[in-house]
């Protein structure tokens, strides 16, 4: 069986969604952002809602998300995406509105916007990439940086006494009645990617019910920030991030698990 007999259009079982542009991703090799972008757009593609989806990009590594996501998007000031999305969802109730944010954006400067959007139960999806570091600015400590984890602003490791504990934002928002679906996923293996995509699909489907926010955290690697190769970073993530940020659904259909 010659390769050329296999590689035929009719035999194709997987390729990039057309809801991702052809602009090369600006992310570092092996970064979870790329995977998260793609499964989000694959969900929107499969639901056939490109015309009714409006995305809100943050400030951080994914500030340029609108260069890659082939939908209407607006770029929010650092931390303010949930507020921006709130207004879009309120003035366009039939649209599918989502924010895509990093840990600095969502859990540091944007804490109030995150908590209050969740508390109001806005009809939006929040996709939250947690890689425990500020990537865009070169690897500083983030609210989710683990204890003892080195960064350019915690060069001797995060010291709980002076820098506080890593923030479990997802568990926090799960306590708010306004959140309907809260889950934590990952995208470093094919199994995890499939689950994460299913969760994102669930989140977007929930928008039809208008019963509150769907909050999907994706724990991801940051190869340049953690100063590791992608596969080493993924292993380190499993050994260190997952114990503190356990994967799985935290709240489904408005009920805590």
């Amino acid at each position: 069986m010659e390769l050329l007999d296999i590689i035929k259009p009719e035999n194709q079982v997987f390729c990039k969604t057309k809801l991702m542009t052809d602009t090369p991703l600006s992310y570092c090799p092996g970064c979870g952002h790329g995977t998260a972008h793609n499964i989000t757009m694959e969900v929107i593609d499969e639901m056939g809602i490109q015309e009714d989806t409006i995305g809100v990009a943050p400030v951080g590594c994914s500030v340029l998300a609108y260069d890659f996501m082939n939908i209407d998007m607006t770029q929010a000031a650092h931390g303010r995406a949930p507020a921006v999305a709130t207004a879009i969802a309120r003035t366009w109730p039939k649209k599918y509105v989502f924010t895509y944010q990093g840990d600095g954006d969502l859990a540091a400067i944007g804490t109030a916007e995150t908590i209050h959007a969740c508390n109001r139960g806005e009809n939006i999806v929040i996709i939250f990439i947690n890689n425990g570091i500020y990537g865009m600015t070169g690897g500083q400590m983030a609210p989710t940086t683990l204890e003892g984890m080195k960064s350019s602003t915690s060069p001797f490791g995060r010291d709980i006494k002076t820098m506080g504990s890593p923030l479990k934002m997802t568990e926090l928002v799960a306590q708010l009645p306004g959140t309907y679906f809260v889950t934590r996923q990952a995208v470093h293996t094919h199994k995890h990617v499939r689950k994460a995509k299913k969760a994102i699909r669930q989140a977007f489907e929930n928008l039809k019910l208008n019963k509150g926010i769907s909050f999907v955290e994706i724990v991801s690697n940051c190869n340049s920030g953690w100063k590791m190769t992608p596969n080493d970073a993924n292993e380190w993530m499993v050994d260190n991030m997952f114990p503190y940020y356990p994967l799985g659904d935290i709240k489904v259909n408005g009920k805590l698990k």
Binding site: R80, A83, T86, A87, I88, R90, T91, W92
Partner: peptide
Amino acid sequence: MVCLQAESEIAAINMVYGAASTGK
């Protein structure tokens, strides 16, 4: 007309930014 009291003036102006970005 949507009327919402935000959690801060910062959130409010960014809500304005969101609605304005859609032409409202």
